[in-house]
Amino acid sequence: SQKPDTKSLVRQMHEAYLKHFHMNKAKARVFLTGKTSTPPFVIHDMDTLQHAERKLHTQLLGNVASGDASSLQEREVEARLFLFCQYASVETVTELTEFAKAVPGFAALDLNDQVTLLKYGVYEALFALLASCMNKDGLLVARGGGFITREFLKSLRKPFSDMMEPKFQFAMRFNALELDDSDLALFVAAIICCGDRPGLSDVSHIERIQESIIHALRLQLLSNHPDNALLFPKLLQKLADLRQLVTEHAELVQEINKTEDASLHPLLQEIYRDMY
């Protein structure tokens, strides 16, 4: 049975997750399974992308100044999609920061350690969350307003065509574990509160936070998935897979940054700089 403090940690993390992330797995599944009165607009070629850009501009890019928006249309499709990805990433990093602050003990850490945990954790967490928005055929975007097909993303020119396919492959394996939002909340907290990130000063404090989250996650999985005793070790393996996925993603972004005319958002530059 779960101790009361573990139960309260499970509940606290689930509540913080639902509060801070505008999209979650339950919501995404409603869109992906067609159980909504407003199905997402399917983006599968250049024409449908242009249509979506007009129809879903704010959801795809937020409040980009209108001047920037018109010059955006003159840029090639790959550069525009890269910008949408960046917008979604910046938004998720912002949400993850708020979620991290809700993890008991995180806000009391030295500020440099908080920065380090986010720098190394946000992309792993982002790709774990992204899986909720994916199925084998594509990716839900623009807060559920759009669905970009996997084939269209694969058809882009290199190196952009290499960007999403590894995330789909990870997502298909990860989604097979059938986690729900209450499981994912603890999994994301465990990703962020990781005691072996480079350059941490108060490792023992972070390890204590990590230990309580991992303990809660193990008990949560036993209670929420009683028929799948191997789920916990399988999920721990996913932490290693995510680290590999981020390393490869960071290399690809550095390559794009060097060889393409695609500027990188300052927040993402901070995260990638001297990462691995």
């Binding site: 500020l111 920065v115 720098k119 350059g199």
Partner: peptide
């Protein structure tokens, strides 16, 4: 580290700061 991660630092200290693209 804080100097090299000004936006992350700002997000950690101030929840209402927007990060525009």
């Amino acid at each position: 580290l804080k100097e090299k991660h000004k936006i992350l630092h700002r997000l950690l200290q101030n929840s209402s700061s927007p990060v525009d693209l």
